[in-house]
Design a binder for these strands. Sequence first.
DNA 1: GTCTATAAATAGATAGAC
DNA 2: GTCTATCTATTTATAGAC
Lengths: 210, 210
Amino acid sequence: MAARRRRAPAGESRDRVFAAAAAEFASRGFAGANMDRIARAARLNKAMIYYHFAGKTALYHAILNDMFGAVRTAVTAVAASDRSPEDKIRAYIDAIAAEGEARPHFPPIWLREIAEGGEHVDAETLGYIRDVLAALGAIIAEGNRAGCFRPLPTLIVQGGIIAPLMFFFASSRVRARIARLTDADVPAVSREAVVAHVQRLTLAQLEGRV
Amino acid sequence: MAARRRRAPAGESRDRVFAAAAAEFASRGFAGANMDRIARAARLNKAMIYYHFAGKTALYHAILNDMFGAVRTAVTAVAASDRSPEDKIRAYIDAIAAEGEARPHFPPIWLREIAEGGEHVDAETLGYIRDVLAALGAIIAEGNRAGCFRPLPTLIVQGGIIAPLMFFFASSRVRARIARLTDADVPAVSREAVVAHVQRLTLAQLEGRV
DNA sequence: GTCTATAAATAGATAGAC
DNA sequence: GTCTATCTATTTATAGAC
């Protein structure tokens, strides 16, 4: 979100389109998303979508941008803070989890983009992703200099963080379905438990304990 | 695959359709997959797809079935073997990695199904998934009785295994793109390294070491 | 078994009134 | 800013010849 729009024109219909589109893209993917359905969910007509956005692709890009822009802002601040490297890793993970959780469409969309090689990612979003990785790289490098981290490749560490996080957040529906299938055994793991777990695992790797 | 087809009719055109469809579904998702493109990739015409399969959905179900049927067969054998619980966990992970790697379409399709709550999973495939989880549950229970494993929920352990595996296998394209973006830092992790890593991590969790 | 049409439905996008 | 109506292209699916 952020930019665009000058006077917040009473009806905030643009936000409704945005929200409806995010949900549609999350549950059906880019190709499966349907402009008519988005309009209906936004309690508007299709023409209004094209009034606010240039087209399906531009709409999708706006959503990706909002997602990764928010993550970039958060983790850049973490990297620039004056905590210890260990605390920065924890905060980095917290930030990604928080932004991912604040947008229910975030994990499914990210998962899909990975599955299709980031085919719909535009240049602006790609820049944000680069910044996110740079932030993590800087934290790891700082830990290296301080002698507390091993020099693991940034992408490996990032994978170890987002794989379980996105997977967990995105899979609540499948988990529910599978739980229903195998009756019981529904642990209902909390967000906090997952985040704490990923934090421990990541630090254990960085510190060479596993 | 397995079932269906009685006499392998010379041209094995059904296999070509199957393979082309698997690749198409993997890279574009169910909604984004296009029957014309599948036909072209299979060096056939669209009518031939409908000659072999009832429709787009049936074609997709056949692919899901092949994927999860293979995993089910492999992990059921592992659970029934007479290794130690630790070895069974390693073999379980190995089996999933092997089946996933043998089918390049497997990781992307699985990732997508998770993103959309398994909406296109049919009853037969769901049964296979149940069996896979039952196998893992049996291994964990055996370890509990032997006193070497903590009683972690099956779904949690399964998530810890498939999240990194599917993520890694599915993300080679994005990883390459990101690596190109940040220039260098391309670790080119091997399949063996990832599997070994997941095995260590999973056992560390089950044995309460992390 | 394999092919060439073609039917029938759907979906992205726009014109133009209010 | 918001709407209805519509154009156009794409897409699943099938009929029917060979």
